[in-house]
Design a protein around this nucleic acid. Structure first.
Lengths: 265, 265
DNA sequence: TCTCCCTATTTACTCCGACATATTATGTGC
DNA sequence: GCACATAATATGTCGGAGTAAATAGGGAGA
C-alpha cells in the first residue's frame, strides 16, 4: 500500500517543470509544488511522505535539492521530519499561515472560503488601527509620498499596472507612517495575499465603483491627524475590498452563468 | 587541513555546538546561529556573507549542512543568494518578523526596545479584537476549557510551570473560540515571543499583582457574550503585561543598582 | 504473563567531490 | 563610447558513501 511508485511520471514532474522559471531555483520549485499540494490538502496533516530517496527519485531530482526543499517547508512549519519516523505533515495549527509564501500557496489553488474570511476579519482589525497610528505619527515626508501615490492612482486607474502599483505605494506609505515594524510586515503580507485574489476580481468584471474618493478620505484624515476619522475611513476601504472579493468569489464558485456573458465589459 | 573533523572545537564553532542538543539537527543549529547573528545586527542588511565553501569551512561543517541552513534563512526572508553575487542579508522590511523562529532569534540577544514596543502595540490591537470574536462565537466546550484552565491557574500560581501552562491554555482557548485561523496563528506567535521575555520578568522580581481577577473578568465577559466588555477586559490584561515587561526591561537595562538588592525578595 | 532492556533495522542526517548553470565582469570590435 | 561576445566565479545540482537516531521487535528477567 505504500509504494505507488510505478505510476506514470509525466504527471508527477509536470508541475515542477512549469514552476521552474529563470531566477527560480529547482529546490524552490519543489518547495512550491509540495507547498501547494499540502495547502490544497493533497497531503493531509499527519500523513507521512515517501522516503527521501523514493520521493526524490519520483520527482526526478537529486536528494540534495529535495532535502533543501523540505528544509524550506520545515522552516514554514508545514512538515517535520525525524529519522526512522519519516517526514510528516504537521497539524494545521502549526503552519505559519501568515508567511508570504504560505499565503501564496494557499491562494494558488482554490482558496478556502473560511480562510479568506479569517484574513479579511484580521485585516478589518489591523488596517484601521494602522491608519490610526499613521494619523498620529506621520510626518511631512509620509504625507508627500501618500499624496504622490494618490495622484498617480488618479492618472492611471486601478485597471493598469501602474495604477495598482500606486495603490500599493499609498498603502505602504501608510504602513511606514505607523512606525511599527510588526504592523508593517503583517499588513504587507495580508495585503499582498488578498490582492492576490484581486486578479480574480479584475478578470471577473470591471470595478463596480471608483475607489479614489475613499482613498482621499483616508488621506485627509491622516493629514489632519484625526485618528478616529482615519480608522473609520480605512474601515470603509476594507469593507469595500471585502465586498469586491466576496462577489468575485461567488462568481467563481457559481459559474453556471456563462463566463463570456460576464466578460463582455 | 582538509578534514578538520577530529580537531578541537574552538571559538568559531562554540555557538553551533552549544545549540546542538539531541533532536536538534546540525543545519538547525547553524540556522539558529546565523539567524541570531543577523537579528542582533552582527551581519547588517546588504552585507554579503563569505562564500559557501569558505563559510562552511569556517563553521567546520559540510557545504550541504550550510546550504540547508541558508535555505531556512531564505525561507524566512532573512537572506537571498544568487550565483556569482553571493548570499546577502536582505533589508529588514523583507524579514518575516512574525515567524516564530525569527521572533525567538530576535529575543535571543538583547531585544530591541523599539521592536518590543511594536509587538505590544500589535498585541494591544489584536488581543482585544480576539476576545471580542470569542465572546461572539464561543460554545460550551470553549467555556469549559477556559474554566478548567482558570481553575488550574488558581491552584498553581504563575510562579510554577503548571501555572504558566494553564495560562497558555486559557489564552489558547480564547483563540480557538474566535474561529479564525489567521488570528490564532498571529496571536500565538506574538504571545509566545512576548512570554519569552517573561523569563526576564520572573527572574527580576516577584509578580507585582495577582493576575487572576483580571483573567476572571475576561472569562465572565466572554461567557456572557458581552463583546465590548470582553475587549475591554482583555485590553486591561495586555496593559498589565506591557507594564510588567516594561519595568523588567528597565531593570535589565539599568543594572547599576546591585542585582542582589533586587533579588532579596 | 508482564515488564524492561537490548538489539536490529529503517530512516533521516552529514559529508564529500564533481559537474552544471547563472550572473557578473572583462575585453573586443565597431 | 556603446553593443556584443567571452571568461571568470560563486551558487546550484548531482550521486554516492557513511553516520547517527529513533522505532520496532525479540529476549532475558521478574
Amino acid at each position: 500500500m505504500t509504494t505507488g511508485k510505478n505510476m506514470k511520471v509525466d504527471e508527477t514532474s509536470r508541475k515542477t517543470d512549469e514552476t521552474r522559471g529563470p531566477g527560480r531555483r529547482l529546490h524552490g520549485a519543489i518547495a512550491h509544488r509540495l507547498g501547494t499540494d499540502i495547502l490544497s490538502g493533497k497531503y493531509a496533516p499527519g500523513e507521512v511522505l515517501s522516503g527521501e530517496v523514493a520521493f526524490a527519485e519520483e520527482l526526478k531530482v537529486s536528494r540534495s535539492a529535495y532535502r533543501e526543499a523540505i528544509q524550506v517547508l520545515t522552516a514554514k512549519g508545514l512538515v517535520a521530519s525525524r529519522p526512522k519516523a519519516g517526514t510528516r505533515v504537521l497539524p494545521r495549527e502549526r503552519w505559519n499561515l501568515l508567511d508570504p509564501d504560505v499565503l501564496g500557496w494557499a491562494f494558488a489553488g482554490k482558496p478556502d472560503i473560511e480562510f479568506v474570511r479569517s484574513l479579511f476579519e484580521l485585516r478589518a482589525i489591523v488596517e484601521p488601527a494602522a491608519a490610526r497610528f499613521a494619523a498620529r505619527r506621520r510626518d511631512k515626508d509620509d504625507l508627500k509620498t501618500m499624496k504622490d501615490a494618490l495622484a498617480a492612482m488618479r492618472r492611471h486607474t486601478l485597471t493598469t499596472d501602474a495604477g495598482r502599483a500606486a495603490d500599493r505605494d499609498f498603502h505602504n506609505a501608510i504602513l511606514t507612517a505607523t512606525r511599527n515594524d510588526a504592523l508593517m510586515v503583517l499588513s504587507a503580507s495580508i495585503g499582498a495575499a488578498v490582492n492576490w485574489t484581486t486578479q480574480f476580481k479584475q478578470r471577473a468584471r470591471a470595478l463596480p465603483r471608483n475607489p479614489i474618493p475613499d482613498h482621499v478620505r483616508v488621506y485627509d484624515a491622516i493629514a489632519a491627524g484625526d485618528e478616529n476619522a482615519a480608522a473609520e475611513a480605512m474601515n470603509v476601504l476594507v469593507d469595500l475590498a471585502l465586498e469586491d472579493t466576496r462577489s468575485a468569489i461567488e462568481d467563481r464558485d457559481a459559474p453556471q452563468t456563462q463566463p463570456d456573458a460576464l466578460a463582455e465589459e
